[in-house]
């Protein structure tokens, strides 16, 4: 499995033609205490860059964008009752949704872990 990162701090971990999407550890730290997550409906269809989910901290709501286009195959329903999981395990149990990747070439525009780290260090 390879994990890619977007400049908007989403990650997508790719297994075959399905990607699991979440927000990065950098993003959860910047947001602070997460109190609500709205995940998309299963079956929802997104183009790359569409608003796909919402994450809310005490202070504000932020959009989570689809890092690639495709159809949502599964969502992390556990976040509804335990949104703080995104703070404690952003890269794992705090995943948001799974997407059937429509065009794998869209992954090429994303960063790998090393490039993303360099990107965050420069922010």
């Amino acid at each position: 499995m390879t994990t890619y990162y977007s400049e908007d701090h989403e990650w997508i971990s790719v297994d075959g033609d399905v990607g699991t999407v979440g927000i990065s550890d950098y993003a959860q730290k910047a947001l602070g205490d997460i109190v609500f997550v709205e995940v998309p409906d299963v079956g929802a269809s997104f183009a790359k860059g569409d608003d796909a989910a919402v994450v809310e901290s005490v202070k504000a709501a932020s959009d989570v964008y689809a890092p690639v286009g495709g159809d949502v195959t599964e969502v992390n329903g556990a976040l509804e009752d335990a949104p703080e999981t995104v703070n404690s395990d952003a890269g794992g149990a705090g995943w948001f949704f799974k997407i059937k990747i429509a065009d794998a070439s869209e992954l090429d525009a994303l960063m790998d872990e090393a490039a993303y780290k360099t990107y965050c260090d420069g922010l």
Partner: peptide
């Protein structure tokens, strides 16, 4: 200061 390292939730 909007928040300190403690974070809004724990500050509250």
């Amino acid at each position: 200061p909007v928040q300190y390292p403690l974070g809004i939730m724990r500050e509250h």
